[in-house]
Protein backbone atom coordinates (compact mmCIF):
# COMPACT_ATOMS: atom_id res chain seq x y z
CA UNK A 1 0.00 0.00 0.00
CA UNK A 2 1.48 3.39 -0.97
CA UNK A 3 2.15 5.86 1.82
CA UNK A 4 0.89 8.75 -0.33
CA UNK A 5 -1.56 8.41 -3.20
CA UNK A 6 -2.63 11.66 -4.85
CA UNK A 7 -5.11 11.70 -7.71
CA UNK A 8 -5.92 14.83 -9.69
CA UNK A 9 -5.26 17.26 -6.85
CA UNK A 10 -6.40 20.80 -7.71
CA UNK A 11 -5.90 23.95 -5.64
CA UNK A 12 -6.97 27.39 -6.81
CA UNK A 13 -6.09 30.75 -5.16
CA UNK A 14 -8.38 33.45 -6.57
CA UNK A 15 -7.20 33.69 -10.21
CA UNK A 16 -4.13 31.48 -9.78
CA UNK A 17 -4.26 27.70 -10.17
CA UNK A 18 -1.58 26.64 -7.69
CA UNK A 19 -1.95 22.90 -8.43
CA UNK A 20 -3.54 21.44 -11.52
CA UNK A 21 -4.53 17.77 -11.46
CA UNK A 22 -1.44 16.46 -9.70
CA UNK A 23 -1.10 12.66 -9.52
CA UNK A 24 1.67 10.79 -7.79
CA UNK A 25 2.39 8.18 -5.17
CA UNK A 26 5.15 7.56 -2.63
CA UNK A 27 6.03 4.11 -1.34
CA UNK A 28 7.34 2.94 2.02
CA UNK A 29 11.16 3.12 2.34
CA UNK A 30 11.36 5.49 -0.64
CA UNK A 31 13.05 8.88 -0.83
CA UNK A 32 10.95 11.00 -3.15
CA UNK A 33 11.95 14.40 -4.53
CA UNK A 34 9.52 17.22 -5.16
CA UNK A 35 11.27 19.66 -7.44
CA UNK A 36 10.33 22.83 -9.26
CA UNK A 37 11.22 26.53 -9.38
CA UNK A 38 9.75 29.07 -6.95
CA UNK A 39 5.99 29.35 -7.32
CA UNK A 40 5.72 25.87 -8.80
CA UNK A 41 3.26 24.77 -6.08
CA UNK A 42 5.60 22.69 -3.90
CA UNK A 43 4.72 24.39 -0.59
CA UNK A 44 1.00 24.30 -1.40
CA UNK A 45 1.29 20.56 -2.05
CA UNK A 46 3.19 20.09 1.24
CA UNK A 47 0.48 22.02 3.11
CA UNK A 48 -2.20 19.85 1.52
CA UNK A 49 -0.30 16.74 2.57
CA UNK A 50 -0.27 18.03 6.16
CA UNK A 51 -3.95 19.07 6.15
CA UNK A 52 -3.06 22.73 6.65
CA UNK A 53 -4.80 23.40 3.34
CA UNK A 54 -7.56 21.42 1.70
CA UNK A 55 -7.55 20.67 -2.05
CA UNK A 56 -10.44 22.06 -4.10
CA UNK A 57 -10.82 18.69 -5.83
CA UNK A 58 -9.05 15.38 -6.24
CA UNK A 59 -8.39 12.50 -3.88
CA UNK A 60 -5.58 12.20 -1.42
CA UNK A 61 -4.91 9.01 0.52
CA UNK A 62 -2.30 8.82 3.26
CA UNK A 63 -1.60 5.29 4.50
CA UNK A 64 -4.74 4.28 2.61
CA UNK A 65 -6.97 6.78 4.49
CA UNK A 66 -8.79 9.60 2.76
CA UNK A 67 -9.22 11.54 6.03
CA UNK A 68 -5.84 13.25 6.10
CA UNK A 69 -6.23 14.49 9.68
CA UNK A 70 -6.28 10.86 10.91
CA UNK A 71 -2.84 10.32 9.38
CA UNK A 72 -1.21 13.39 10.92
CA UNK A 73 0.30 11.56 13.94
CA UNK A 74 2.27 9.44 11.45
CA UNK A 75 3.70 12.44 9.62
CA UNK A 76 6.78 14.46 10.51
CA UNK A 77 6.79 17.85 8.76
CA UNK A 78 9.63 20.32 8.49
CA UNK A 79 8.42 23.47 6.71
CA UNK A 80 10.65 25.72 4.65
CA UNK A 81 9.94 28.66 6.97
CA UNK A 82 11.65 27.51 10.13
CA UNK A 83 11.35 28.72 13.68
CA UNK A 84 10.89 27.47 17.19
CA UNK A 85 9.89 28.92 20.56
CA UNK A 86 12.84 31.11 21.42
CA UNK A 87 12.16 31.21 25.18
CA UNK A 88 12.06 27.42 25.58
CA UNK A 89 14.85 24.86 25.53
CA UNK A 90 15.18 22.24 22.73
CA UNK A 91 14.01 19.44 25.02
CA UNK A 92 10.75 21.27 25.84
CA UNK A 93 10.13 22.26 22.21
CA UNK A 94 10.68 18.76 20.80
CA UNK A 95 8.67 17.12 23.61
CA UNK A 96 5.74 19.54 23.04
CA UNK A 97 5.61 18.77 19.32
CA UNK A 98 5.83 15.03 20.08
CA UNK A 99 2.89 15.40 22.49
CA UNK A 100 0.86 17.13 19.78
CA UNK A 101 1.54 14.05 17.64
CA UNK A 102 -0.09 11.84 20.25
CA UNK A 103 2.70 10.79 22.65
CA UNK A 104 2.09 10.93 26.40
CA UNK A 105 4.07 13.46 28.43
CA UNK A 106 6.71 11.03 29.67
CA UNK A 107 7.02 9.20 26.34
CA UNK A 108 7.32 12.54 24.54
CA UNK A 109 10.18 13.59 26.78
CA UNK A 110 12.02 10.32 26.23
CA UNK A 111 11.43 10.56 22.48
CA UNK A 112 12.70 14.14 22.51
CA UNK A 113 15.89 13.08 24.27
CA UNK A 114 16.49 10.31 21.70
CA UNK A 115 15.75 12.57 18.74
CA UNK A 116 18.10 15.27 20.04
CA UNK A 117 20.77 12.64 20.46
CA UNK A 118 20.22 11.47 16.88
CA UNK A 119 20.94 14.99 15.61
CA UNK A 120 23.84 15.43 18.05
CA UNK A 121 22.12 18.12 20.12
CA UNK A 122 21.99 16.36 23.50
CA UNK A 123 24.65 18.65 24.93
CA UNK A 124 22.47 21.69 24.17
CA UNK A 125 19.12 20.16 25.14
CA UNK A 126 18.60 22.48 28.11
CA UNK A 127 19.87 25.73 26.68
CA UNK A 128 17.39 28.33 25.52
CA UNK A 129 16.61 28.23 21.80
CA UNK A 130 17.48 31.92 21.56
CA UNK A 131 21.07 31.06 22.56
CA UNK A 132 21.56 28.52 19.75
CA UNK A 133 23.08 29.16 16.32
CA UNK A 134 20.95 28.88 13.18
CA UNK A 135 22.49 25.53 12.30
CA UNK A 136 21.81 24.16 15.80
CA UNK A 137 18.21 25.43 15.65
CA UNK A 138 17.80 23.63 12.35
CA UNK A 139 19.03 20.39 13.91
CA UNK A 140 16.49 20.86 16.72
CA UNK A 141 13.79 21.41 14.11
CA UNK A 142 14.78 18.18 12.45
CA UNK A 143 14.70 16.39 15.82
CA UNK A 144 11.15 17.73 16.32
CA UNK A 145 10.24 16.24 12.92
CA UNK A 146 11.63 12.81 13.87
CA UNK A 147 10.81 12.53 17.59
CA UNK A 148 7.45 10.78 17.31
CA UNK A 149 8.89 8.18 14.88
CA UNK A 150 6.69 9.13 11.92
CA UNK A 151 6.23 6.75 9.02
CA UNK A 152 6.29 9.63 6.55
CA UNK A 153 8.72 12.56 6.59
CA UNK A 154 7.79 15.70 4.66
CA UNK A 155 10.81 17.97 4.39
CA UNK A 156 10.51 21.33 2.62
CA UNK A 157 13.99 22.43 1.48
CA UNK A 158 15.71 20.53 4.32
CA UNK A 159 19.23 21.46 3.22
CA UNK A 160 18.74 25.19 2.68
CA UNK A 161 20.93 27.25 4.97
CA UNK A 162 22.82 24.24 6.34
CA UNK A 163 26.60 24.28 6.60
CA UNK A 164 28.37 21.39 4.79
CA UNK A 165 28.92 19.40 8.01
CA UNK A 166 25.29 19.70 9.08
CA UNK A 167 24.13 18.85 5.54
CA UNK A 168 26.25 15.68 5.58
CA UNK A 169 24.88 14.74 9.03
CA UNK A 170 21.32 15.31 7.82
CA UNK A 171 21.94 13.08 4.79
CA UNK A 172 23.22 10.37 7.14
CA UNK A 173 20.10 10.62 9.32
CA UNK A 174 17.89 10.51 6.22
CA UNK A 175 19.62 7.34 5.03
CA UNK A 176 19.02 5.81 8.49
CA UNK A 177 15.34 6.73 8.26
CA UNK A 178 15.06 5.23 4.81
CA UNK A 179 16.70 2.00 6.03
CA UNK A 180 14.13 1.96 8.85
CA UNK A 181 11.44 1.80 6.16
CA UNK A 182 10.18 5.36 6.40
CA UNK A 183 8.95 7.20 3.34
CA UNK A 184 10.63 10.55 2.80
CA UNK A 185 9.28 13.29 0.56
CA UNK A 186 11.63 16.23 0.24
CA UNK A 187 11.27 19.34 -1.81
CA UNK A 188 14.48 20.88 -3.07
CA UNK A 189 16.11 23.11 -5.64
CA UNK A 190 19.35 21.20 -5.23
CA UNK A 191 19.31 18.79 -8.16
CA UNK A 192 22.63 17.16 -7.26
CA UNK A 193 21.28 16.24 -3.83
CA UNK A 194 17.99 15.02 -5.26
CA UNK A 195 19.92 12.86 -7.70
CA UNK A 196 22.16 11.49 -4.95
CA UNK A 197 19.43 10.86 -2.36
CA UNK A 198 16.17 10.19 -4.13
CA UNK A 199 14.67 7.24 -5.94
CA UNK A 200 11.88 9.03 -7.76
CA UNK A 201 10.73 12.57 -8.37
CA UNK A 202 7.81 14.78 -9.22
CA UNK A 203 8.66 17.97 -11.07
CA UNK A 204 6.17 20.83 -10.91
CA UNK A 205 6.11 24.04 -12.89
CA UNK A 206 3.45 26.72 -12.39
CA UNK A 207 1.17 24.19 -10.73
CA UNK A 208 1.49 21.69 -13.60
CA UNK A 209 2.99 18.22 -13.27
CA UNK A 210 5.92 18.18 -15.72
CA UNK A 211 7.85 15.03 -14.85
CA UNK A 212 7.12 12.04 -12.68
CA UNK A 213 8.96 8.75 -12.28
CA UNK A 214 12.20 7.16 -11.20
CA UNK A 215 15.26 9.31 -11.61
CA UNK A 216 17.06 6.69 -13.70
CA UNK A 217 14.07 6.33 -15.97
CA UNK A 218 13.75 10.09 -16.42
CA UNK A 219 17.42 10.43 -17.17
CA UNK A 220 17.19 7.65 -19.76
CA UNK A 221 14.14 9.34 -21.24
CA UNK A 222 16.10 12.55 -21.69
CA UNK A 223 19.24 10.85 -22.95
CA UNK A 224 19.99 11.13 -26.69
CA UNK A 225 22.72 9.52 -28.79
CA UNK A 226 25.35 12.04 -27.75
CA UNK A 227 28.84 10.74 -27.15
CA UNK A 228 31.67 11.96 -24.97
CA UNK A 229 35.04 11.17 -26.48
CA UNK A 230 38.54 11.36 -24.99
CA UNK A 231 41.19 11.63 -27.66
CA UNK A 232 44.86 12.23 -28.44
CA UNK A 233 46.08 14.75 -31.03
CA UNK A 234 43.34 16.51 -32.98
CA UNK A 235 39.76 15.64 -33.86
CA UNK A 236 38.40 16.16 -37.32
CA UNK A 237 34.91 17.58 -37.98
CA UNK A 238 32.33 14.97 -38.99
CA UNK A 239 29.11 15.59 -40.89
CA UNK A 240 26.69 13.55 -38.78
CA UNK A 241 27.35 15.28 -35.41
CA UNK A 242 28.03 18.71 -33.88
CA UNK A 243 31.20 18.82 -31.77
CA UNK A 244 31.50 20.76 -28.48
CA UNK A 245 34.91 20.66 -26.75
CA UNK A 246 34.80 19.91 -22.99
CA UNK A 247 38.56 20.36 -22.41
CA UNK A 248 41.81 19.93 -24.39
CA UNK A 249 41.43 16.17 -24.72
CA UNK A 250 37.67 15.64 -24.41
CA UNK A 251 34.75 16.63 -26.60
CA UNK A 252 31.05 15.92 -26.91
CA UNK A 253 29.33 14.99 -30.17
CA UNK A 254 25.62 15.74 -30.56
CA UNK A 255 23.89 13.83 -33.40
CA UNK A 256 22.55 15.73 -36.44
CA UNK A 257 20.13 14.71 -39.19
CA UNK A 258 18.92 11.69 -37.24
CA UNK A 259 22.31 10.07 -36.89
CA UNK A 260 22.70 7.39 -34.22
CA UNK A 261 25.52 6.84 -31.73
CA UNK A 262 26.96 4.00 -33.78
CA UNK A 263 27.10 6.18 -36.90
CA UNK A 264 28.94 8.94 -35.03
CA UNK A 265 31.47 6.48 -33.68
CA UNK A 266 31.97 4.90 -37.10
CA UNK A 267 32.47 8.35 -38.68
CA UNK A 268 35.08 9.23 -36.05
CA UNK A 269 36.99 5.99 -36.54
CA UNK A 270 36.87 6.39 -40.33
CA UNK A 271 38.20 9.95 -40.03
CA UNK A 272 41.34 8.55 -38.38
CA UNK A 273 40.82 10.12 -34.96
CA UNK A 274 42.96 8.66 -32.13
CA UNK A 275 40.15 7.77 -29.68
CA UNK A 276 41.29 6.78 -26.18
CA UNK A 277 37.84 6.44 -24.53
CA UNK A 278 34.20 7.00 -25.37
CA UNK A 279 30.91 6.87 -23.44
CA UNK A 280 27.30 7.84 -24.00
CA UNK A 281 26.34 11.21 -22.47
CA UNK A 282 23.73 10.80 -19.72
CA UNK A 283 22.04 14.11 -18.81
CA UNK A 284 22.16 15.21 -15.20
CA UNK A 285 18.98 16.05 -13.33
CA UNK A 286 20.09 19.66 -13.46
CA UNK A 287 20.24 19.54 -17.28
CA UNK A 288 16.80 18.03 -17.37
CA UNK A 289 15.42 20.58 -14.89
CA UNK A 290 16.68 23.48 -17.01
CA UNK A 291 15.40 21.85 -20.17
CA UNK A 292 11.92 21.30 -18.70
CA UNK A 293 11.31 24.54 -16.88
CA UNK A 294 13.53 26.78 -19.01
CA UNK A 295 14.87 30.10 -17.78
CA UNK A 296 12.95 29.91 -14.47
CA UNK A 297 14.66 26.63 -13.67
CA UNK A 298 18.06 28.06 -14.40
CA UNK A 299 17.32 31.03 -12.15
CA UNK A 300 16.16 28.73 -9.35
CA UNK A 301 19.35 26.70 -9.61
CA UNK A 302 21.50 29.83 -9.57
CA UNK A 303 19.72 30.98 -6.38
CA UNK A 304 20.42 27.63 -4.74
CA UNK A 305 24.09 27.77 -5.76
CA UNK A 306 24.44 31.31 -4.39
CA UNK A 307 22.84 30.27 -1.10
CA UNK A 308 25.17 27.30 -0.83
CA UNK A 309 28.24 29.42 -1.54
CA UNK A 310 27.20 31.88 1.15
CA UNK A 311 26.66 29.03 3.60
CA UNK A 312 30.09 27.59 2.77
CA UNK A 313 31.74 30.89 3.61
Amino acid sequence: MPVIEAEDIVKQYAEVRALDRIRFSVEEGEVFALVGPNGAGKTTLMRILTDILRPDSGTLRLFGQTKVSDALPQIGYMPEERGLYRHLCPLEVVAYFAQLKGLGRRAARQAAESALEAVQMSAHARRKMSELSKGMAQRVQFAATLAHAPRLLLLDEPFSGLDPVSARDLQRVLQDQRRAGRAILLSTHNMALAEALCDRLLMLHRGQQRLYGSIEEIKTRFADDSLQVEYAGTLPQIACARMEPVNATTARFYPQDGACRRAILRALVESGADILRFEPVVPTLEDIFIRVVGAEGEQALRQTETQERLTDL
Binding site: P79, R82, L84, Y85, R86, L100
Partner: peptide
Protein backbone atom coordinates in the same frame (compact mmCIF):
# COMPACT_ATOMS: atom_id res chain seq x y z
CA UNK B 1 2.19 36.86 17.22
CA UNK B 2 5.32 35.00 18.37
CA UNK B 3 4.20 31.76 16.76
CA UNK B 4 3.57 33.63 13.53
CA UNK B 5 6.82 35.55 13.68
CA UNK B 6 8.80 32.40 14.58
CA UNK B 7 6.97 30.35 11.93
CA UNK B 8 6.21 27.70 14.58
CA UNK B 9 2.60 27.89 13.57
CA UNK B 10 3.07 25.79 10.45
CA UNK B 11 4.54 22.89 12.43
CA UNK B 12 1.68 23.07 14.94
CA UNK B 13 -0.95 23.20 12.23
CA UNK B 14 0.54 20.08 10.66
CA UNK B 15 -0.40 18.29 13.92
CA UNK B 16 -3.69 19.83 15.06
CA UNK B 17 -6.50 21.89 13.60
Amino acid sequence: AEEKENRVIEVILSSIT
